[in-house]
Write a protein that binds this DNA or RNA. Structure first.
Lengths: 326, 326
DNA sequence: CTGAAAGCGCTTACAG
DNA sequence: CTGAAAGCGCTTACAG
């Protein structure tokens, strides 16, 4: 053990542990001479003292960690960016972001008990029981589906609806009268996919188009079957669940020797790096990750500061990135 | 606070906290009646008792967490899979994997102090100082570049060399006499890229080919310039740093209206999902993630069990996935 | 076979 | 302005 404790710092500086603690935690309302403060801080640095987080957590019941729980499906580059941004925003306030890639193999409780985080951010829904326990333990719990912050609600997410809506309207504006929806075969994505599809469906109703034609699309193989289906049903524009699905659709189009955008146009979601490099380059809906990250960070910090008023959620911040595919 | 402590369980079960601790940690060498054990365990479950990890960490100086430090560049789906597998392997032994996406904004020490992990796995090199401090604190530190486990060494990684070698030999076997290397423009990837390129270079020497022609390739735009360069220099086979880079090369080929594999063949690394969907489908070198994950897990568990002999490292486990591009 | 007690390192009322 | 002391919840020699 390195084993440099606050007692060591106290002894070296000729003060009590109380004073060391006051100085180092920057406690307000205590008057300690500037001279003493400097001496303590200097000694701490010199000895390479870092407070035991375990002891602090035990004493205060709280750590400086923010725990992010990811869903059990591969999250992709967009989520990665979001987490990076979030970590950046929070590190300025002494908070560290820790991520759990959540195959839920062990009870979630084991995890947050072990971490005693200040806040838990869930990128997948929590079980009601977990939610309750964490709240009882005084942990700030943020749920997020897309950017929405409301773990308790069950209705479709506004953002997901807006994504589908934007995709559909773009294709309709380009002249498509009959749309297809490329549905991910991965079961774990169903919740998101449902809401996005609903957005497309509502837009179709609104625009006087017929119901979108849904075909399942796997991610690892050209979506030839789905493409043939759409072709035979007179579909000229396909909204894909996300860019990964859209890539499979484009591959299916090539396999069936249909032209894109000539025969069928395609629009994805996420603007992953591969989208710009696809054949043809993929038109897609991008979300402004920075805005989401800042909002999440603001939520955590507002709680940290004990401020009553919560920051107001940003809009969906969607942006259509127009390329060649649609 | 939920606030159910071992004292509560002890009182409810009519035993001492000592006994509760012995029963619940499954301590060997103590004889406690089966009857008592059952009663304690049952009470614990009934009360929803979960030991305070902070207290346990303070007392024992160790938690059940394994901390993974990622590099500050986007890691992609391969790393995600690796982390998932690792978490799976370790969860069976009561260990939870936590990931830190490492823009090194705060000192690393703050992080591991706060987590008191049992082991730290670095997917990017550690500073010597951090390494020393963690070791001193009794934390098991594993470094990994690719799959190699040797944070201290400086020479090129055998695995990275082998990747480049395999790429080059495949293209040469297909008839290419002059190779190109697609070098990532992202500075943070240089260490890996250098070793992989070195592997290609050595293979070229070995095969009697001329030096590979290196061109930088950005990830967000078709690599038209690089492609023109290779064409003008008579290159007929391009080894790319990874699949992302290869995708940009394929896009550049299309932009320059060169055929692939007809004019220039391309081989990537990683076998990301998008590789199979590229135009043309990308030939690539895949690593066996499961094997790496198991090895890493075995390393952690060997230390946990205090076993002297370390598991022997698996080979690179490379596999050429042959598709249309090369 | 079981219990009383010490102690991990911190923070924080409380007393000077 | 500073210090002695309690206590967070656990584990673990040690004594019965």
């Amino acid at each position: 053990m390195a084993g440099i404790t606050s007692a060591d710092v106290a002894r070296e500086s000729g003060v009590s542990r109380t004073t060391v603690s006051y100085v180092l935690t920057g406690r307000e309302g205590v008057t300690i001479s500037e001279e003493t403060r400097r001496r303590v801080r200097e000694t701490a640095v010199r000895l390479g003292y870092a407070p035991s987080a375990a002891a602090r957590a035990l004493r205060t019941g709280r750590s400086d960690l923010v725990l992010c729980i990811l869903p059990d499906w591969p999250v992709g580059p967009v989520m990665e960016t979001l987490l990076d941004e979030l970590a950046d925003e929070l590190s300025g306030r002494g908070l560290s972001v820790l991520v759990h890639h959540g195959r839920r193999t062990r009870p979630l409780a084991d995890l947050w008990r072990a971490v005693t985080p200040r806040a838990v951010i869930g990128f997948a829904p929590f079980a009601d029981e977990d939610l309750l326990m964490m709240r009882q333990a005084g942990i700030q719990v943020l749920g997020t589906l897309g950017e929405d912050h409301r773990p308790d609600e069950d209705g479709p997410s506004e953002t997901q609806l807006a994504i589908g809506d934007l995709q559909a309207r773009h294709l309709a504006a380009g002249g498509a009268r009959r749309l297809g929806y490329a549905w991910p075969t991965d079961r774990r994505l169903e919740d998101f996919a449902r809401d996005r599809l609903l957005g497309v469906q509502r837009a179709c109703v609104d625009l006087g188009l017929s119901e979108p034609v849904v075909h399942p699309v796997a991610l690892d193989v050209p979506a030839a079957t789905a493409v043939r289906g759409w072709r035979d049903q007179g579909v000229t524009g396909v909204t894909a669940y996300n860019d990964d699905v859209a890539l499979a659709v484009l591959a299916g189009l090539r396999a069936e020797e249909l032209s894109c955008p000539g025969d069928i146009r395609v629009v994805g979601v996420d603007d992953v790096p591969a989208a710009a490099l696809a054949a043809p380059a993929l038109t897609t809906v991008a979300q402004s990750i920075e805005v989401q990250a800042r909002y999440l960070a603001a939520l955590v910090l507002a709680d940290l500061d004990g401020s009553e008023e919560k920051p107001s959620p940003p809009g969906p911040g969607l942006r259509l990135v127009e390329r060649e595919s649609g």
